[in-house]
Design a protein around this nucleic acid. Structure first.
Lengths: 194, 194
DNA sequence: CTGAAATTTCAGAATTTCCTGAAATATGTG
DNA sequence: CACATATTTCAGGAAATTCTGAAATTTCAG
């Protein structure tokens, strides 16, 4: 591995972190390297710096492209592919969350819906279904929140995050000012029944 | 594997999902099984239902305990350990997030702080440090938000999530009502300089 | 204290995942 | 089209992880 010490520390760490996230070490390292790099890198650059095989880099880059996590660029008079991460780190986060949702949450929701349609054949199954219903509803709440928040531009998102639970205070104030007894609570529209 | 079909579907799915999360298949299956089970189960119950070895179950349960994801119970006149998940699914989510933060985010923040203390030896390292600073600040924002939100009781948390980005509307309203030109924006206190 | 039941440990087998080098394929230039 | 360069594919070896059975340890009732 042929990197400035400071960069190497970070790259090694993200290689290890990758493992915990079900992403392999090399892919984590490639991404860390691209993230820190000022200039886009071509595959051969990555080979030299990480000291892994050309084919390994090729597979890693393919995986990162499948995740929409890298931009591909070209330099005039050079037909090699150059890779870079988005300049905006928030864009990276958005993509990561989006892709993980697509691969993990969505299929799980599909499965939960299917299983919840079935007729329980025993008390045991009935209880299991109740538990799955709880999980389904929780995921629905979280993905609904996510869909909402995801649409905000970054500036407003940061505002919201900075505020944290202080939002609560604002809501209480609003309630005290505007809610008349017996009125409905405000909130996102309830999801339509299927 | 000896389970009602409905339960088996779910257990198998979470076994696979486990792999994607750096958790091994058996651990995922054990947790799914406990989550759906009305009664706490002992190790032998789990062996019978999942059809894996006793020692594998023992290791899996140990791992789940290390994650604080299972409660251990005893029945009178029976010295075997019985395991269950929390009844409240929100408690499960809170624990999961807390533990992942502890294992993944916290060490990463430590590393970032260390690396950011060092003197860059080149333009390349200087740029790398800037990128690490961006990541550091982003994680700080997210963990700050998380620390805030985590303290809310579940009812208020659900309120907040249900509201989604509509919060934004409330904030705008608040600003229109109360902010006088030149006043500071409200928000969480800025982190102290170290 | 003894012995039976429950649990844990752990070495090595089984499985899965990762990585490489060689070959195949693709791309674009002259 | 031919050639050089770039990239991808893929079989099989390397490495890591998961899982098991046997042995060791712990626990507790009598």
């Amino acid at each position: 591995m042929n990197l400035p010490p400071l960069v190497q520390t970070f790259v090694l760490h993200f290689g290890e972190m990758g493992s915990r996230w079900g992403i392999n070490r090399t892919v984590g390292q490639i991404y860390a390297l691209l993230y820190l790099s000022k200039e886009p890198l071509n595959a051969e650059d990555i080979v030299e710096r990480l000291g892994v095989s050309r084919s390994n880099v090729s597979m890693g880059l393919k995986e990162l492209q499948a995740w929409n996590l890298v931009r591909l660029q070209h330099k005039p008079g050079d037909r090699r592919d150059y890779f870079a991460t988005p300049d905006d780190i928030w864009q990276i986060v958005r993509t990561l969350v989006e892709e993980r949702k697509k691969r993990e949450i969505d299929p799980t929701m599909t499965l939960l819906r299917e299983v919840l349609m079935q007729e329980p054949a025993s008390a045991e199954e009935r209880h299991a279904q109740e538990r799955m219903r709880e999980m389904h509803d929780l995921f629905e709440l979280l993905t609904g929140w996510y869909a909402d928040v995801q649409r905000l531009d970054t500036e407003r998102l940061v505002q919201l995050l900075t505020l944290g639970s202080k939002v609560q205070k604002v809501l209480e104030m609003k309630d005290r000012l505007f809610v008349v007894p017996g009125s409905r609570k405000s909130g996102r529209d309830a999801p339509k029944d299927k």
